[in-house]
Design a protein around this nucleic acid. Structure first.
Lengths: 188, 188
DNA sequence: GGTAACATTTTACAAATGTTAAAAAATGAT
DNA sequence: ATCATTTTTTAACATTTGTAAAATGTTACC
């Protein structure tokens, strides 16, 4: 069990004893492609690590659906507002391929945060890494054109380009699918 | 000393004993309007709480300067990349009015994180709150037009509208100053 | 293999925003 | 108060991106 977790980067910083504590509260779950594992407007009681798979988080607007996050194997996955504020979230999370996830109840995780210094700092670093990545995206939107953001996406996430529908990538990049098609056409 | 910190919201969740520990490492500093307290491309060795004042964080581009964050009294203030990755940051932070700040050395703060469970969780929550606010902004960019984002800004930060140059607000909202002027003109 | 459902590209046009430059207004320093 | 500097607005025009609809391509399933 521990050995299996050791293969996942997010757990490598934890000592054996903390990883053991965490492992006591972990379940492995499997879902098929297309499963919505997190629903907007509901409190999601679990924190997940995407052991193997691809996921996207999106919000529903009036006419549109905006994808604002992609997760790949090794990434953490949770409803921000459930995890952070214990309130219903604003995002849906859909698995884009058959996936296996590690699941921890938030109530268990929060207990660990109150008991175990190492795990509390582990949780702090998770939030910090997500924070800096999110801010980078916000800044990139200001400094880079859509074409450059698309190139960056290809470079940084070659797996996703292959396996994710372009309409999702378009909204992730902050443009319509038509604009993304134009960018792609210009590059040939 | 403790009483003074108790007036600042960010510290209200801490117990007396933790606040005492934190207070041992705190200095109060004062800077004039216009001071750049954090410089891009340098490691900033302090974590700040803006006790009284207004600040903005911005990045320098080729022709432009993009403001992507405002801080007001009570907000935390730090170089993301220094704090999170111990690397030179990408942002400058300028004080827009004469300000007083609480200053903690990052090395001291990190030691507290490794020693004090309550402070570690306090640090976790700071990162989480910044994270959810940043993600909200990213999502709002997708769902709301510039005029609506401006209205939201007025509603949420009435102080800033009064006291911050419109050119900074324009780039914060993700538009040029010309566009912001047009939005303002349309509202009369 | 054929068909239905869905995804992507293309086209034509509309709307929003950017660019540049200049004028007007506000601010600050002496 | 006046002058110089900076900020904000306005104007004209260019560019980018969006919208809607049709055409083409792809996938999954019977």
């Amino acid at each position: 069990m521990i050995e299996q977790l050791r293969n996942i980067e997010i757990f490598t910083s934890l000592s054996d004893s903390s990883l053991h504590e965490l492992a006591n509260h972990i379940e492995h779950v499997k879902y098929k492609k297309g499963t919505i594992i997190i629903h907007a407007d509901k409190i999601e009681p679990h924190f997940y690590v995407l052991e193997k798979g691809i996921a996207r988080a999106y919000c529903n607007g009036e006419n549109q659906e905006i994808t604002f996050w992609f997760g790949q194997s090794g990434n953490v996955l949770f409803s921000f507002n459930s995890y952070i504020n214990n309130r219903p979230g604003y995002e849906n999370v859909e698995l884009l391929v058959n996936s296996t996830l590690i699941q921890i109840r938030l109530s268990d995780l929060f207990s660990l945060y109150e008991d175990n210094l190492e795990i509390a700092n582990w949780g702090r670093k998770i939030a910090e890494q997500e924070l800096i990545a999110t801010e980078r995206r916000l800044i990139d939107r200001a400094f880079k054109g859509a074409a450059e953001r698309y190139q960056d996406f290809i470079n940084q996430s070659p797996e996703l380009i292959k396996r994710v529908a372009l309409k999702h990538i378009a909204s992730y990049l902050g443009v319509t699918q038509v604009t993304l098609s134009r960018i792609r056409a210009a590059h040939k």
